[in-house]
Amino acid sequence: MVKKDVKKQGINNIEFNKEGNFIIASLNPKIYPLEVIYSAVYVFLDKAYVIIDGDPDNEIFVQLKAKNSKEDMEKLGMEFNNELVNYAVYVVQAIRNQPLRKAVIERALLTNTSGNEYCTDCGCKLEYCKDCDVTYCPSCSLDHENETAHEMKEEDYIVDDPLNIAKPWTPPKEAGDEKPKNKKK
């Protein structure tokens, strides 16, 4: 139930001080946690001088004093309230999405760089072996627990080398570099 005075006068969590050119906002940490308040205040660091006081368990006071004397403090106070709601929604959404974000990151880290999720030979879905840190095809690799199941075949070591890059290169021996042969007496 909304109290009668709140219904008549509206919600008023901000006190304006025109002489001092500052506002004081009183905030309930159960509605706006400290992280939300800090984030909202941080937006106003360029426009205003900020002082935070109070008890994080009961009530927090935020004073915003305009850097520019021509600043509309009433507008600043309302913008501050909007910023609080903005970050409160952000936090709620972040908490809701946390399991999903975790799952996406875990999947991304587990995926091989090649991105092959299906066996190229038989088309079966590849499975991941945590012990060997390898993805394998359950039908082609008959016993994946056997270390040889994941070992590379000899054919896999043969690589096409049309430019002869893999060919070992040694400089030709110049005349005079050869070892002198032992002369027979």
């Binding site: 400290l34 992280e35 800090y38 002082i51 004093k65």
Partner: peptide, 20 residues
Amino acid sequence: TYEFMNYTFSEVKKEGVGNV
């Protein structure tokens, strides 16, 4: 003094207290 307070607040935020 006010600049001192603003700088302290930005340091608090940088330290990760209340990071969203």
